[in-house]
Amino acid sequence: MAKYLLKLYIAGQTARTQQAIANLRSICDTDLSGQFELAVIDVLERPQLAENEKILATPTLVKELPPPLRRVVGDLSDRDAVLVGLDLAVWDKKDQARK
């Protein structure tokens, strides 16, 4: 199966950052069955990357692979919204599991 490539842009180690990382780990472990690669990018350290990617808000989660490219912003506390927003194929998986 396809491996997910995710990038999480954060602005320093704030409470919100911690929250977002914890939420993301939980989603990845349960819904992506560990099939993912995650890069956490701190825009305070690498502002030019944020400029190149036109990142505006933090945290921003970008799903680079598989296509299509998707972005969500926020601390990822709304789990269902994250899955819908990233267009993750988990719904199919769940449907299949039910059958």
Partner: peptide, 14 residues
């Protein structure tokens, strides 16, 4: 972009 929880403009500021 979809909004999934709280956020700030830290990236813009940076």
């Amino acid at each position: 972009v979809a909004e999934v929880g709280d956020y700030d403009f830290g990236a813009l500021l940076a």
